[in-house]
Design a protein around this nucleic acid. Structure first.
Lengths: 209, 209, 209, 209
DNA sequence: TATGAATGAGAATTCATTCAT
DNA sequence: TATGAATGAATTCTCATTCAT
């Protein structure tokens, strides 16, 4: 992470180029998930991809770009998986449940990528020391989920609560799962999802009495 | 071609020695909190402490020992602060509230140390690649909190829920706070605490019928 | 907080790679022979090879591997040189003479490598403190030479003596030569060889009277 | 081994001073014998002596002086032990036998000091890179023993041989013993001595027939 | 005399990046 | 495009020596 060359824009890439990049990104994901970000050197990634180190640098002029590509790939896949499931629900409570459950299903089905993403979010920094996944990123996710929660409050499904704190709490409860999986692969994600959904259903619903 | 040394046991330390160690630990905390664990080199810590690098390695033969000392210091302080507050409560619900609130008060009052601790928990690894704060550590905290929750279930204060998932969710909701503070120093921790307490009060209480 | 890497197996090496490794090994040999093992740092070796330090660690992930390569190179060359000369003799006395003389010829023709080898044998230690050229190595050489000596005893050429002590004495008389050469380059090795051959001929032959 | 302060001359030392120095030298001997010269740091020696490191540097301004003291102590003790035994013999053959046997007895009785001495002879160097036990030292020993051998030749007891080569061979056969003991503590030194004495008796005596 | 803290010069390794082929 | 060699900065750790108390 020393200099500033940029790789060519995505549109100009050939199919072969795209395939190579994708392969490298996958290997980077597995390496980060397995050894942690700090130990996931370009050497290690190249070894896992069974290509020379030069190939990596050829396709990704700097390590930061690999990281960006990993983030992009995982985030895009997550959004693709989750959005329709959430939108399929009509009630706010249903959407919240879908948010939690689809998120955990996705995590369960893509363990390495998510473990890698959490590793990156926690530790990856730019050359200047700033976090690659910075506060804005979390703020954006919190804002999106907050909107969902506010909709529930407006419709009267949800009680009054600070939507930002609730959103952050839900997001961190979800983000904890890859972290837990990295340390305890046997974790029962389905059960975890059901319990989380219940916890936040109770925490958000309008007071009954 | 290198070997390992261990520092002398704590009891044999003089006052001056203890003070120096404490100063170094404090600088290590600030450095890790500010730059992240990966960038908190011994050089950086020494620079912040305005001593030569050798001083650090004189008092802490290996970097791992600095990390251990940081963990010990922060964890001990946290326990001292929280335990009486929790034990002062008699109901399970009260204890849970005290658990959450005293934890967040402590975090608020010791931001850098807690940010550093979270950084270390996330990324610090031993020479062999294993995490310094491993799964056992989290398991222990979850078990302790789980016991509190089970007591509430036995007494009928709490509904039936999976105590392990609930404990992990509460712990991660709390651990998220230093992480948030690192990224958004203006966070209103008091408000956050109140909301968290409410969330988990609602999530745990017996269904009203 | 450091780990170990292993270099790729020898078969996979390209010609250029092998040449570089060989060059580095040669420079390592000269450096060790000239300055002693303790002072032969990777920096020094790199300086002598007129390459950056990184080149060394690129080809030899750890210093121990350089040492292993030095040992292998010298030992293999020695065996290649000596074995046919010894085997060309049919009598035990002839073989013993050939053993001593071919050994000293080889030493004379490869002074630096042998001086380096003796330096390494005396002082090089692994990370765990164990000697890189350990007791087994000497035991093996003593056993081989002992077998030659026992053959001479069985055939009646040699008198009764403790073959192990004799073998060790001969081996150390030979190993002393690189040591002597390092301190006194003008040593007349040919004369030394003739005298040594005579000493051990007299010491081993069957009592005449 | 960086600078050049000299410690006070021996005559000016108090009794307590001398005792301290002797204790430090003994600990240095044990440390070098056990861990090798390269690993025998001042720290290690101080730890073994159960004094602070400063004590060492107080009594021995530089590490080189410790080494000098070790050498002096061991060499003097050896001379004291061996000289009368050698001089008690009247024949050259007797003196040679006494030389070998008393030497090995002394080694056997003072293993650590001799192992340390050999370690030092092999590897210890001055700040400028020159060997602390240099060629002169060996040359001196060879000259002394050579004189004994020449006397035997003059008297007709010994055959004609190159006295220098013979002397060096005998010396190295003896010096090998501490080296062997370091690697194989069970070595039967008495047997070894007898065999060595026989080897060199046969190698030196005048041809019988 | 004794102590132990401090210093700063190396030492081995790791690693992102550059570059010639 | 691909390769892998080369570079040099950064990092942890060791150690002889200096120095204030």
């Amino acid at each position: 992470m020393r200099t500033k060359t940029k790789s060519a824009p995505a549109e100009t890439r050939s199919f072969a180029e795209a395939a190579r990049r994708s392969q490298i990104v996958d290997c980077a994901i597995d390496t980060v998930a397995e050894m942690g970000f700090a130990r996931a050197s370009v050497d290690q990634i190249a070894k896992r991809a069974r290509v020379s180190k030069g190939v990596i640098t050829y396709h990704f002029p700097s390590k930061e770009e690999i990281v960006d590509a990993v983030i992009e790939k995982v985030v895009a896949a997550g959004r693709t998986y989750m959005e329709p499931r959430i939108m399929a629900e009509t009630s706010a409570a249903g959407r919240l449940r879908a948010y939690i459950e689809s998120n955990l299903e996705f995590i369960d089905a893509h363990r390495s990528p998510l473990i890698a993403l959490v590793e990156i979010a926690m530790t990856a920094r730019r050359a200047d020391g700033s976090l690659i996944i910075g506060p804005e990123s979390l703020a954006q996710r919190a804002a999106n989920l907050g909107e969902l929660l506010r909709a529930g409050q407006r419709s009267g499904e949800f009680r009054r609560f600070n939507t930002r704190v609730m959103a952050l709490t839900i997001i961190h409860a979800i983000d904890a799962v890859p972290f837990l999986l990295a340390r305890e692969p046997g974790l029962e994600v389905k059960l975890h999802a059901k319990e989380l959904a219940m916890i936040f259903a109770l925490a958000t619903r309008r007071e009954s009495s």
